[in-house]
Simulated scan of single mutants.
Amino acid sequence: MRVILNVIWLILSGLWLFLGYALAALIMVVLIVTIPWGIAAWRIGVYSLWPFGKTVVDRRTAGVGSALGNIVWVVLAGWWLAIGHILSALALAITIIGIPFAWANLKMVPVALLPLGKQIVDM
């Protein structure tokens, strides 16, 4: 079932969301100083390609550095990516079949806004 959900997700919104994250990662890596945020953007982008069967958990070792990094992230790219998830969720929620995918998009908004200090694990 997960494979079917992931394939439909990939076609409907996963690829477009991944491209947004990849663009954010590329910009962050080009700016050199923001490479850690580029790595986080890439990690979440790969998660946005194939999200069913995975979940996001808080890392216990995350501290003040992650909190400060998240503030920088929100300013640079986080809010744009969160808006992308919300718009994609609205578009998917129009049909009955798209409602589970809209819900998955909404569950990804917090990690799009505050990615540092999070870890993506298999369920």
Rank of each mutant, 00 (worst) to 15 (best):
M1C: 10
V3Q: 12
V3D: 15
V3Y: 12
I4G: 09
L5M: 15
L5I: 08
N6K: 08
W9T: 03
L10P: 01
L12T: 07
L12Q: 06
S13N: 03
L17A: 07
F18R: 04
G20Y: 07
Y21R: 02
Y21C: 03
A22N: 06
A22T: 07
L23F: 15
A24H: 02
A24E: 01
A24G: 00
A25P: 00
I27N: 11
I27E: 13
V29H: 14
V29D: 14
V30C: 14
V30D: 11
L31H: 09
L31V: 12
L31R: 11
L31E: 09
V33I: 15
T34A: 12
P36S: 06
W37L: 14
G38P: 02
A40H: 01
A40K: 00
A40D: 01
A40W: 01
W42R: 10
W42S: 13
I44K: 02
G45H: 02
G45C: 02
G45L: 01
G45F: 00
V46W: 08
Y47E: 12
S48Y: 03
S48M: 07
L49Y: 05
W50C: 14
F52M: 06
F52N: 07
G53L: 14
K54L: 12
T55A: 09
T55I: 13
V56H: 05
V57Y: 13
R59T: 02
R59G: 00
R60V: 10
R60D: 14
T61V: 08
A62N: 11
A62E: 10
G63I: 06
V64G: 03
S66F: 10
S66M: 05
A67F: 12
L68W: 11
W73M: 12
W73V: 11
W73K: 11
V74Y: 11
V75A: 10
L76P: 04
G78I: 07
G78F: 05
W79V: 15
W79I: 15
W80M: 14
W80L: 14
I83T: 15
I83Y: 13
G84N: 03
G84D: 05
I86G: 01
L87W: 06
L87F: 04
L87D: 03
L87Y: 06
S88R: 07
S88N: 12
S88L: 13
S88K: 10
A89V: 00
L92I: 10
A93M: 09
A93D: 06
I94P: 05
I94D: 04
I96Y: 04
I96N: 05
I97V: 15
G98F: 05
I99L: 08
P100C: 01
W103S: 07
A104S: 11
A104F: 06
N105F: 04
N105H: 10
N105R: 02
K107F: 04
K107R: 14
K107S: 09
V111R: 04
A112P: 05
L114S: 09
L114T: 08
K118I: 13
I120N: 02
I120P: 02
V121D: 07
V121W: 08
V121F: 07
M123T: 13
